[in-house]
Design a binder for these strands. Sequence first.
DNA 1: GTCCAGCATG
DNA 2: CATGCTGGAC
Length: 356
Amino acid sequence: MTTKIGQDLIAWYKKNKRDLPWRNTNDPYLIWVSEIILQQTRIDQGLSYYLRFVVRFPSIEDLANASENEVLKYWQGLGYYSRARNMHASAKQISELYKGKFPDNYDQIKSLKGVGPYTAAAIASIAFNLPHAVIDGNVNRVISRLYGIEIAVNTNNGQKLVDEKLNTIFVRNDPANFNQAIMELGAMICKPSSPECNKCVLNVNCVAFQQNRVNDFPVKIKLKSPELLYLFYFILKYQNNSQQFVYLNKRGENAIWKNLYDFPGLQFNSKKEMNEVVTEFKQKYFPNNFTQNPEKITGPIKHQLTHKSILAFFIELKIDKLSVNNFDDKLIAVTVEELQKYPVSKLIENYIKANL
DNA sequence: GTCCAGCATG
DNA sequence: CATGCTGGAC
C-alpha cells in the first residue's frame, strides 16, 4: 500500500525526468560537485556553473591542487561562498586521508566539510545506492502536502514528522531513483506556487489536494528579518605609465563574503552623511592631509543578503599611490584588466562591469 | 519595490 | 537558534 506511492513516484520520474549532466554519471565526485552547487540554488542558475566547474576541475585531485582564489573565482556569482571553500578543503582531505578515493559510506561522506544530512544522503543514495532518504525543500513541500502536516517544517518536531512520513513511502531497494523522483516532483509539479496538481501522480493520495488546501502547506514559522547595513566603498584610482590602477581589499575570515575581494571602505549600521564618511575615510587611509574630492558617487545600490539588507555607495577618488595607509597589507593595487582575476561578490561584480 | 526558495555550520 | 547569497516570482 505505502510502497505503491513510492513506486508510482519512480515510474513517473523515469518517464518525465529532465536530462541533466549529473544524472548520466556514477562518479561520486561529479555527483558531489552537483549537490554542493545545487544547495540553496536552482538548477537553472547552477547548471552553467557545474559545466564550467567540471571542465576545469574534472577530478578530486584537480580540485585539491587548485588555489582557493581560483576555486572561488569559478564560484563567483553563485553566493554562499563557504560552499566553495568547504568543498576545496574537503577535496584536499579526500586526497590525503582517502588517497583521492571518494568515501563510499554515509558517515564518512557526512564528515566532509560542507556535507550535511541532505547532501550525505543524496551522495550515498545516488552514487552508491545506499538506502538513505533525502529531505530537502522539495521533499518537505511534497510530504507536508501529501500528509497535510500542520507542524512547521522548519522546527525539530516538524522535521521528525516529515522524516517519519517519508520513510513510510521510501523505496529502500531503489533509493537513487526514489530520492530523485520525489525531488523532481517537487521541482516540476508540486511547486511552491501554482502547483500542477492535475498532473500529479499522487493527487488521489494527497491530503492537501483532497481538502483543497494545497497553498496552506508547507507550514513555516517566519524568521528574523534582516538588519540594515550601509557600505561605503572607495574606488582609489591612480594613473601610472598610462595604466589605470585601483585598490582591492581582501576580505577576512569574518562575516560576509569571506576571502572574497572588494574595495577599501567603511560600514555603518545606520545612515551617515556622505561628507562625514569621506572625511573619516580620508583620515583613516590618508594620514597626510589628503584634500582631493570624489570624482563620482554611485548609489545607493540595494543588495539583499540572508540576514542583511545592504545599501551600498561607491565613491571614486583619484589618488597618488604612495600616500595610502595600507592596513595589514590587505590592500593590493591591480590594473583594471587584472580585476577579472579576483573573486568578488555580485555587488562588486556589477559595479566593476558598469563602471570600470 | 518586497518576499521567498534553497542547506550547512557554530 | 543565528548566520551566510542570489535570482526570480509577485
